[in-house]
């Protein structure tokens, strides 16, 4: 069985007006099917990319996989454990949570501006009782910062003292602090400059090799995942329209939607 399995995942949003308004204006309920029976599996230590345009439901899926949002139907299992299992006690929940972490899109909103980097990085250690004692935590913070290409002295600074790329590194370090097995990367480079994007993508890739991490990579840009995704799933309006190994998807796309996405992606080559 695969490490991460999403089975018949559905999520509907209720966009209706309040009850009283609806009754007065005789409107029906308005439901939006953001995710519609999506199935995918991710092997341990590999990268699975979900690619889609705005409104494709890719971020909704990401939020469901980390447990920030409950599926309307279907299930997500990680290493055989069902995320939506209501009978788990708090300890079991925490154990499962530790294994799944997330790197967010915005380098600005994802770090608490009032916290020092050292506190941001040591918080997961405390929350999951991973490392006791201030000295040991400080050592671990230094180690994490080094792993993402930053220096020990950065622990004493505030997020606003860093550039977008550096903040994204801190965000990655925070995810690593929980010693997770799965990391959901939700458009981690879409707010970054191109030259910095490459740094972050390379970093994610080398961390994957070092720690055997499993990635679910959410993106709107096929090119971003070209070097690292083992498999790509293409989402269109909540439906998974095509899924192939990256090389195959790029060389022989099956669906028209995928072909359109591939041809629309801007290419840096001289054509005229």
């Amino acid at each position: 069985m695969s490490f991460v399995v999403a089975k018949d995942l559905c999520r509907t949003f209720d966009l209706s007006e309040p009850w009283i308004v609806r009754k007065l204006t005789m409107q029906p309920k308005r439901l939006l099917k953001a995710v519609d029976h999506v199935n995918f599996e991710i092997e341990r230590g590999t990268t699975y990319a979900l690619v889609g345009e705005s409104g494709s439901g890719k971020s909704t899926i990401a939020n469901m996989v980390v447990g920030l949002m409950q599926p309307s139907a279907g299930s997500i299992t990680i290493d055989g454990q069902n995320l939506g299992n209501a009978s788990m006690n708090r300890q079991e929940q925490q154990r499962l949570r530790r294994r799944i972490q997330m790197v967010f899109q915005s380098p600005y909103a994802s770090l608490n501006p009032r916290w020092k980097v050292g506190d941001i990085l040591s918080e997961p250690m405390r929350a999951f009782n991973l490392i006791d004692g201030a000295t040991a935590q400080r050592r671990r913070v230094a180690e994490l910062l080094e792993q993402v290409g930053m220096s020990e002295t950065d622990a004493g600074k505030f997020p606003h003292e860093f550039s977008g790329g550096q903040r994204q590194r801190i965000s990655i370090a925070r995810a690593l602090a929980s010693q997770p097995e799965v990391i959901i990367c939700d458009e981690p480079t879409s707010a970054l400059d191109v030259s910095v994007q490459a740094q972050v993508l390379n970093l994610l890739k080398s961390l994957q090799q070092d720690f055997g991490l499993t990635y679910l990579f959410i993106t709107h840009d096929l090119a971003v995942v070209s070097t690292m995704a083992n498999k790509i799933g293409v989402l269109n309006q909540g439906v998974l329209v095509e899924e192939q190994a990256t090389v195959d998807l790029f060389s022989k796309p099956q669906q028209d939607y995928t072909k359109m996405l591939l041809s629309a992606a801007p290419k840096i080559e001289f054509s005229s």
Partner: peptide, 9 residues
């Protein structure tokens, strides 16, 4: 950052 805090329980 609030989502990140929720993720660690």
């Amino acid at each position: 950052y609030v989502a990140a805090a929720r993720l660690i329980g």
